[in-house]
Simulated assay, not measured.
Amino acid sequence: MTATLIDGKAIAAEMQAKTAAESAELSAAGWAPRLVSISVGDVAAAELYVRNQQRRAEAAGVGFEARNYPETISLEQLTGVLQGLNADPRVNGIIIQRPLPAHIPVKALQKSIHPLKDVEGMHPSSIGNIVYNDLALGPCTAVAAVEILKTLPLKVEGLDVTVIGHSEIVGKPIAFLMMGLGATVTVCHHLTRQVAVHSRRADAVFVAVGKPGLVTGEMLKPGAALIDIGINRVEGPDGPRTVGDADFDSCAEVAGWITPVPGGVGPVTVATLMQNAVLATRMQMAQYRDIYTAAE
């Protein structure tokens, strides 16, 4: 392997230390950050994520409460729950765990969360703010991927970047974030002809599609940075394992830097979630102070 392995856990640990310090400062001011996680029905699919989030929250000094509701709950009832959490000053952030039952569209729930409590960065206003380079509460995975790239010894201004995948919560936000930093960005998707033509000329490639082995070494410029955001479960000779969207072995022979899966973007995404929780708490504290100052 010639590529330098990007240690997402180390980056996340550094972020977590800063978040814990800010959380302690807010707690001393009477504003201890607190998250509420919402899941519906069988939680087996989301249980690992919830446990990981709770563990990271505790390490960052952020309160965490996991709530599970029966699969029979209606969209109207769940929306009412969110409205109650929006109005509760003791709750600073709301997380919607996926998957959800078919009768509850996740976008409807994301729209119901107050933008100041949207720690996942999924509310339409949070996504839209990125167009104006306002990163107050950005979508965690996209922000994490860009933060990883910023740790590398690359000049972002003028960097040629290819984003493979154009989802509303990962690919598109990454493209806007990178443009906001001065990069020249190409976005590829399932209708793009000859993706390799674009990826081979890029100094940095982000891939977030959900297709294992999609990006191979021959699709990369030698020395390029590869940020692999995909998470896929595949069967191997020793049983199921987690892999990204890149063929790691061939890409590592060509790339200058590469993120492993797991251990790359994932830990930084959770660290970004906690960072958003602290920032959301600070923003809510300021809003309450403005309201009561104006009322006096």
Score class of each variant (00 low, 15 high):
56 R>E: 15
36 V>Q: 05
48 L>I: 14
141 T>N: 04
52 N>E: 15
43 V>Q: 00
35 L>R: 07
79 T>A: 03
143 V>T: 12
58 E>V: 14
74 S>M: 08
74 S>Y: 06
36 V>W: 08
62 V>Y: 02
78 L>A: 04
52 N>K: 15
76 E>Q: 11
107 K>W: 08
124 P>Y: 13
63 G>S: 08
84 G>R: 07
85 L>W: 01
93 G>N: 00
55 R>T: 15
63 G>N: 07
47 E>H: 02
38 I>M: 10
62 V>S: 08
71 E>M: 04
87 A>C: 06
36 V>N: 05
90 R>V: 13
85 L>C: 07
79 T>E: 06
46 A>M: 04
67 R>C: 09
92 N>Y: 08
99 P>G: 02
41 G>F: 01
46 A>K: 02
56 R>S: 15
79 T>W: 02
81 V>Q: 06
102 A>K: 05
82 L>Q: 05
48 L>T: 15
42 D>E: 07
100 L>H: 00
51 R>H: 15
95 I>H: 03
118 D>E: 06
49 Y>N: 04
111 K>V: 11
58 E>R: 15
121 G>E: 04
134 D>P: 12
116 L>W: 10
91 V>F: 00
138 G>M: 13
66 A>K: 07
134 D>V: 13
86 N>T: 01
34 R>T: 11
101 P>L: 01
107 K>F: 06
48 L>M: 11
137 L>R: 08
46 A>N: 03
138 G>I: 14
55 R>F: 11
74 S>V: 06
127 I>G: 01
43 V>S: 02
105 P>Q: 03
114 H>F: 07
80 G>V: 03
121 G>P: 04
134 D>K: 12
84 G>D: 10
108 A>Q: 06
77 Q>E: 13
114 H>Q: 10
39 S>H: 08
90 R>Q: 11
140 C>V: 14
83 Q>L: 10
55 R>M: 12
123 H>Q: 13
95 I>K: 04
40 V>W: 01
54 Q>L: 13
35 L>I: 14
121 G>W: 05
116 L>Y: 09
59 A>K: 12
77 Q>V: 03
124 P>A: 11
94 I>M: 00
93 G>D: 07
51 R>K: 15
